[in-house]
Nucleic acid binder design. Structure first.
Lengths: 242, 242
DNA sequence: ACACCGCATTAACACATGTTATCGTTCCGG
DNA sequence: CCGGAACGATAACATGTGTTAATGCGGTGT
């Protein structure tokens, strides 16, 4: 089991520095590393879980669904994101979490949150930061789904995920980044049908703005893609990691 | 200026109990009460504010907008909700906040959050709870906007706001609750055009499910409305108030 | 080798929702 | 008292997006 002091995520450029004491404490709290296969349900909607997690490796997403099976993806989770934290610390999860790729989770006891707030205020603030940060991303998704055209949503999504993946250290030598979402996932994330998702994606491809095949996303013309999305980028803040 | 110990919101049935010490501390932190008129911008998008607030009286909403003016309402704020808290404690607000009615805000210094985490872990947890709870509501909005039909969204919204308003102690003797959203607001919240919002609302009216006039919402047939929304209600949790 | 299943692609068609326009009412400021 | 602005209602029309269906391809289990 990897000690947190040696966590490869800490080396990323946008990670906040922690003190050795903080790192040691976190590492002591770490209970296990759980592997999951792509497609696994990590937390089912409405389930309760003794643990909370940090995503160490791989991609996942949060979602909610309706009784008849329609599903909305709320947010894509990348390494460093917290999984399973919610307002009601000890009750049923209001959303599900599913793995997009093979995934490794660092597990902590749920009660750790109490001790963390009691004994490590600065870490508690970090945890709140992470949770609030994830929600900010969901706000952006809502803005897209509610008010942007399908084309704009798609461009937006690709720009954002390209950037997030790149800053998670996933950029490949040829400039592409891994992109494990199927068109079905994209549809559920953007609030579109799978067919229309394909139509819109084809348009972007034909215009040479993006290439997306075999799970690799390459952006041909980032400037143009941003123009389509009518989006200008804010600088990424430094983030904590628990 | 109202001392927090005497805050009328504390009397609501779904409020958590606080110790006298906690109440005294919060009350000492309270800096001012700010009034705002209906329609006022409380926090502009991208603005920075020295303070954070608790909504004491009135309705407000969080929103994000696009350069060309399209706007998405993220969430409706009712008394007891926290205003102006965000991940980047000291940076620009990623969303705006606007008053729907006359509003009164309790103001706190932003640094208070630091002291709160350092000296009052239990309150810090409450603050995190409130922030996460607000975001859960936004998740529900996203599910609606992304995956429900216009009709379902409308029914959903009315059921939820009816319930929230009622549990905030706003139910009138005739069974109605105040409903200060214009159809334009509803459209921005549900991701619809104003015209279509009106169409859908008329349908619900003609079926006798709701009445909505002069700022008062009355639900004629709650059971049927829930059926339209395909929604079954979870019990409301006990909430903290800062 | 075969059948099967998930995923991507495309076409034809249907329809929910958006757009533009007009009108009435109320309210407010000059 | 009048003019304008905000809001609500409705109609006619336009279109973006959903639905259904068929096809091909690659992987996987038997």
């Amino acid at each position: 089991m990897l000690p947190c002091q040696a966590c490869p995520l800490r080396a990323l450029s946008d990670m906040r520095e922690f003190t050795p004491e903080q790192l040691a404490w976190i590492s002591r709290q770490k209970r296990a590393e759980y592997p999951h296969a792509a497609g696994d349900t990590i937390i089912a909607e409405g389930a309760t879980d003794e643990r909370i997690y940090t995503l160490l490796r791989g991609w996942a997403f949060r979602y909610k669904s309706l009784p008849d099976g329609r599903r909305q993806i709320l947010n894509v989770l990348l390494p460093g994101d917290v999984v399973g934290l919610q307002a009601e610390l000890m009750s049923a999860s209001p959303h599900g979490v599913e793995a997009l790729t093979e995934v490794t989770l660092c597990a902590f006891r749920r009660d750790m949150v109490w001790e963390l707030f009691r004994d490590h205020p600065s870490l508690a603030l970090d945890l709140t930061w992470l949770s609030a940060h994830g929600e900010r991303l969901t706000d952006d998704v809502l803005l897209s789904v509610g008010r942007r055209s399908a084309m704009e949503r798609m461009a937006m999504l690709l720009v954002l995920l390209y950037r997030r993946a790149a800053s998670s250290g996933l950029k490949r030598p040829d400039g592409g980044v891994p992109f494990p979402l199927t068109q079905g996932h994209i549809a559920d994330l953007l609030g579109l049908s799978a067919v229309h998702t394909n139509r819109v994606l084809q348009q972007l491809r034909r215009q040479g703005l993006v290439s997306l095949k075999e799970g690799v996303l390459t952006v041909g013309d980032l400037r143009a893609l941003r123009r389509v999305a009518d989006y200008w980028e804010q600088p990424a803040p430094r983030r904590p990691l628990l």
